[in-house]
Design a protein around this nucleic acid. Structure first.
Lengths: 343, 343
DNA sequence: TGAGGTCGGGAAAACCTTTTCCTTCCGACC
DNA sequence: GGTCGGAAGGAAAAGGTTTTCCCGACCTCA
């Protein structure tokens, strides 16, 4: 089974030979450098074409000081959130001829170190660290500022690091302002576990938006639980089956909660958005579109976040220094759950 | 902003110098090659440690004929299905010190070619092509068998290619056998668009499992539509609101359909699994767990598929030849929608 | 005392490109 | 005719590592 190897690729030496020039000349011809007769240049290019020559970028990188590759280290395994980010990042970097190495370390420091070692060996030009986390993660151990590192959708416990995050606070404000804008005054907030920083930030946005409209958070209207539909249903039960005044709107911490909530409302015969308007978070189409009615939601613009990360990384590789936390605006997407006139 | 560059890394030359040996000797010491005094070896290793030396794998790859990298080309953008596959693949390859380049070409042949060019330039040792597709895709244009290529969750129109796929047929059979096993005899199949090969295969498995139990497909019980919850609800409406005999089980082409179906059944007061048992496909936990009751489903073992792809690729890089279509078994996961005794 | 063996380590080629510096050739100009 | 300058292209270093081959020193044995 081990007999026939994969054939070796043509090198620039083969091209030079076939074109009857020196290897330096061949290089110049192919890179449009130096001073060559047009005829020679064309002869070399033709030879390269015929041989299917493709320059060995390992050799090129060795010579230049750039490898034209970057690493993407995902701690949390590639979740639903990482995908659009990485996809857009890859797209952006590909435009600059930069390829990405994907690694996944699933919160295992040992594997992270191992991957990092490998990436450093490969002389990546930069590193993106991503992965949903509740708290700040320890910074990755790249030896002595050897390359730019950006944390995306993840926060490093290092004031010198650059972190790119969605604007949870602003997103929450938009959601609540929208609900206030359609006349709601009794807005509850059902959200995830308070261990997530996003939960705190979104709650703050919620409260500040209320305050800005002269409203205050009503006792019992802020409910933290899990990121699941079941919790959404449960919270609705608690809010609507008890005594007390009923909410006329729900701002939910994610779309799963929002969907569970609308299901529970429908089953109680409570009209959405008639009696209660609902806005979710994440704009995850699997949820927003399947819910009845389709959910209004806050979109974190993850693709844009990925693109931005690509942008920043390219600039930093070119020498620019950046640090601190940069938050990208969220967008409100209105659907029927908060506006019956929407399709 | 362009003043301070990233510092250059230590090279083996620095290590050799610090240890007072030649660079060849340093290399031998670090790779545990050649014949050296233990003391010398240790001195070199210590020097490397002190300098934080990490061999430049570009240089290594240039010398060896292996780059220790492989490409992953995703046509369909990284969907929900690609992720577990890629994750497991990466894990498996990482164990062998192989890193992966991720590229996404979203069904754009021009971008695909561009990525392929880039990957060839980087001298990848192998290529994985992935992406859910309905039909066989044209094989990727790697010049003259220059490296092994494996299609995963994707099929190439080339008898010489190796394609790794889930066993849709067998998965469907398992689902239906399970339903028959719990005493159901009137089993309907609600599934996706017939343009997907998987739809055809699963339907065949469904029919053959019925036949093996002496049952036949009932008129109007095979329904093709979209891969959505809405379609699941719609199909239930068609099946249960009309005249005709009612099904006592539903085998659904994916979990979204299955979930839509269970929702529709519940709203009609039809007990699941009491009156109608439901089995889905994909075992997508977001759906199976949120559904009421939780859905039994067929798991395509995508992680195992990814691991297998890694396995095969490593073997092929080592010289083994393989071709044809290899299908990986699916697994039935039983939950309440087909067995009330399950949690 | 010399032949042969082992041990320890150095020199240099090889991997593939790019780039700088040189050489050669030729026409032009004084 | 000699000099200058430009055009065309070659030679070689550099980039970092591995590996093969070789050399010198020391040892063993006859």
């Amino acid at each position: 089974m081990d007999d026939d190897r994969y054939p070796l690729r043509a090198t620039i030496r083969d091209v030079a030979e076939r074109a009857g020039v020196s290897i330096g000349t061949a290089s110049k011809a192919l890179n449009d450098n130096g001073r060559l007769k047009t005829e020679t240049r064309e002869r070399v290019i033709a030879a390269a074409q015929e041989l299917g020559f493709r320059p060995n970028s390992l050799a090129q990188s060795l010579h230049r000081t750039r490898s034209m590759t970057v690493g993407v280290l995902s701690t949390d395994s590639f979740g639903r959130f990482a995908f659009p980010i990485i996809e857009a990042l890859e797209e952006r970097l590909a435009e600059h001829g930069i390829a990405i190495f994907m690694c996944n370390a699933t919160d295992d420091p040992a594997r992270e170190k191992q991957h990092l070692d490998q990436l450093l060996g490969k002389r990546i030009d930069g590193l993106i660290v991503t992965g949903r986390r509740m708290d700040k993660r320890p910074p990755v151990a790249v030896p002595g500022q050897s390359m730019p590192v950006i944390y995306v959708f993840s926060q490093a416990d290092d004031p010198e690091a650059l972190c790119l995050l969605p604007d949870d606070y602003g997103g929450a404000m938009q959601a609540v302002q929208h609900l206030i804008g359609i006349g709601r005054k009794r807005i509850a907030h059902i959200t995830g576990p308070e261990t997530f920083e996003a939960v705190t930030l979104r709650h703050r946005g919620y409260r500040d938006a209320l305050a800005a409209a002269g409203l205050t958070e009503i006792e019992g209207y802020y409910r933290r639980g899990k990121w699941s539909e079941a919790w959404g249903r449960e919270a609705v039960a608690a809010l609507f089956d008890g005594e007390g005044d009923l909410p006329d709107a729900l701002f939910c911490g994610n779309d799963q909660i929002a969907r569970g909530a609308t299901d529970a409302l429908r089953e109680r015969g409570i009209a959405v958005p008639g009696a209660v308007a609902v806005v979710g978070f994440d704009n995850w189409d699997v949820m927003t579109r399947a819910a009845r009615p389709p959910l209004s939601s806050i979109d974190m613009n993850l693709r844009e976040l990925g693109r931005l990360a690509g942008e920043r990384l390219i600039a930093m590789i070119a020498g620019e220094r950046r640090k601190g936390v940069e938050r990208l605006h969220c967008s409100l997407v209105v659907r029927q759950s908060s506006d019956p006139t929407q399709s």
